[in-house]
């Protein structure tokens, strides 16, 4: 094997990478059945890359779990299947459609119906069914106020709930994964990363990401300031008009509520420049966070990612 250059070893990206790898190895050692929550977005892709590094030359010792709202961009699923093949890992899918069919959740109605909130039940069902005891999430503390106080190892009770007032102290790099039967942990290896760090790391490591992230032409419309893509799952309201625009996505989630941005950035360097100049947070493009100031905290308490 070639001896690698150690030029960037002291950079912030290497420090963040080492921290994430340490956390992933701790999870593999402290838990019996970890799983990596894979949304198809860049953060979960970066996590799979870090997991590959953490356990090399071994294989990633846990499966991926995709909570599928059924409202996906086609590119997301294509990419997911390609990546699973590439990594040689097992993929589990928790389907919101199945949960609806089984009557576990009731679909929102109306033109603004979103399945984002419906992911919680199938996710918790899958965790219970597979007895997963630790689930890696791509959450970052910079994304949203409620996340600024999140731990790397975040305890969830038997109902999958997070208690922001009763979090365990987390000091140095000593992570406490002790729990009772039926409880589990969410683990956030990217806690200390920012959106910029993620993009810089993708460029540094030459990580493959779905084409949705790069500027492309698409049929879109604007709803309450958010640019949404035309999909089969969304109905236009009176006054909303479709147009063709060059856009890209800064996050990838449920197609009905993931906002696009007007952008010409078609390469990683261009995206990095755009992020550097951006005037709106990444989640600013997420339609569902705008519902109330404490929206995220409420969903986290219930067991959202």
């Amino acid at each position: 094997m070639a001896t690698v250059e150690t030029t960037y070893r002291d950079s912030h990206l290497r420090a963040l990478e080492a921290e994430a790898i340490y956390v992933m190895r701790e999870v593999a050692a402290q838990f019996e059945r970890p799983v990596l929550l894979f949304s198809g977005g860049k953060d979960s892709i970066v996590m799979t890359h870090l997991a590959r590094k953490a356990f090399h030359p071994g294989k990633i010792p846990f499966p991926l779990l995709h909570v599928d709202t059924g409202h996906n961009f086609e590119e997301t699923i294509t990419f997911r299947d390609w990546l699973v093949e590439e990594l040689g890992v097992r993929l589990e899918v928790a389907s919101v459609q199945d949960a609806i069919d089984k009557g576990r959740v009731v679909e929102e109605t109306g033109p603004e119906a979103s399945r984002n909130g419906l992911q919680i039940v199938p996710l918790l069902d899958a965790i219970q069914e597979h007895q997963f005891d630790a689930a890696f999430g791509g959450g970052r503390r910079d994304e949203e106020k409620a996340r600024a106080k999140e731990r790397f190892f975040s305890h969830r009770d038997r109902f999958g709930q997070w208690d922001p007032k009763n979090q365990r102290p987390e000091l140095w790099s000593l992570y406490n994964g002790h729990k009772n039967v039926g409880e589990h942990f969410r683990v956030f290896p990217l806690s200390n990363w920012t959106e910029m760090d993620v993009w810089q790391y993708i460029a540094l490591e030459d990580i493959a990401i779905p084409s949705l992230y790069f500027a492309h032409e698409r049929e879109v419309f604007t709803r309450r300031g958010t640019i949404l893509a035309k999909t089969d799952f969304i109905t236009l309201l009176p006054g909303e008009e479709l147009r063709t625009q060059t856009v890209r996505f800064r996050t990838i989630g449920d197609a009905t509520c993931t906002g696009a941005v007007d952008s010409q950035a078609s390469t990683l360097p261009e995206i990095i420049q755009e992020v550097a100049a951006a005037r709106e947070t990444e989640r600013g493009g997420r339609h569902d966070d705008k519902r109330s100031e404490a929206a995220m905290e409420d969903r986290k308490k219930q067991g959202y990612f």
Binding site: H12, W82, A203, I209, S266, I272
Partner: peptide
């Protein structure tokens, strides 16, 4: 064609000041 894209150009072109940043 499979819906993936990799870094379109090497990171050296990316205005790579950030590679020298520390923490």
């Amino acid at each position: 064609t499979n819906g993936t894209a990799s870094a379109a150009s090497a990171p050296e072109d990316a205005g790579n000041d950030y590679l020298e940043m520390d923490l």
